[in-house]
Simulated assay, not measured.
Amino acid sequence: MKPVVSALNAWSCVVVSVAAIIILSIIGGLFNANHHSMVGSTKDPADGKAVAGSVFAAVIVYAVFLVFCGFQAFLHVRQSKKGAIELR
């Protein structure tokens, strides 16, 4: 199978996806626990559990991106070990 995206794009997507999963998981956990820093003001949402559900849905989307881009990066690594010449 041939990669669909370039190696640079694949590895960049892996890094961004991992960072987003970590950051959004922390934010979702804070909303899920109704932490005062997230729901303590009058302008903040009242139902932290509903917001946490939306944030965790975004985590799932980034996990799908991570799997796809990780597979693309794996294909690039496997292709480069075969000694194939890559034109840029």
Rank of each mutant, 00 (worst) to 15 (best):
I21E: 01
N32M: 11
G53C: 10
V77L: 01
V51G: 06
A20Q: 03
V51C: 08
V59T: 05
Q72N: 05
A84P: 06
S41I: 08
I26M: 06
I26S: 06
K81C: 01
I85C: 03
S37Q: 08
A58L: 14
S80L: 01
A33K: 13
S41A: 10
V55G: 12
A50Q: 13
I23G: 02
G70V: 02
G28V: 06
V77N: 00
F56N: 12
K43D: 14
A20Y: 01
S80C: 00
V5P: 09
Q79E: 07
V55A: 12
F31H: 09
N34G: 03
Y62L: 12
W11G: 04
V55D: 13
A46S: 15
G40D: 14
S6Q: 08
V51A: 09
S37I: 13
A19H: 02
V64F: 13
A50L: 12
D47V: 14
S25N: 06
D44F: 04
G70A: 02
H35P: 06
L66W: 03
T42V: 14
F74A: 02
M1N: 08
V51L: 12
V16P: 04
G40R: 07
G28N: 05
V64I: 14
V18P: 05
H76L: 01
L87G: 12
P45W: 15
H36S: 14
S17E: 07
A7Q: 14
V15D: 07
Y62S: 14
D44K: 06
V15Y: 07
I21Y: 02
V18R: 03
L66S: 08
A58S: 11
F65L: 11
P45Y: 15
A50V: 12
D47T: 13
S54A: 14
A73K: 00
S37C: 12
Q72C: 04
A84I: 06
F71T: 07
R88G: 15
V64L: 11
A73H: 01
S6M: 07
A63F: 10
A50H: 13
K43Q: 12
K43V: 13
A33W: 03
T42W: 05
V15K: 13
I26N: 05
A20V: 02
V14K: 04
L75I: 01
A63H: 06
S17H: 01
A46Y: 15
N34E: 04
C13E: 08
T42C: 10
G83K: 00
A63L: 12
V64C: 13
T42K: 15
C69E: 04
F71V: 06
F74Q: 00
V5W: 15
L30Q: 05
A7K: 13
I22C: 01
A57I: 11
V14Y: 12
A52N: 09
A73G: 04
I23A: 06
H76Y: 00
F68C: 04
L75W: 02
A10H: 04
V64Q: 08
S12A: 15
I26W: 00
I23H: 04
H35F: 04
K43T: 12
V18A: 07
S41K: 13
P45H: 15
A7C: 10
L30N: 03
V55K: 09
N9L: 10
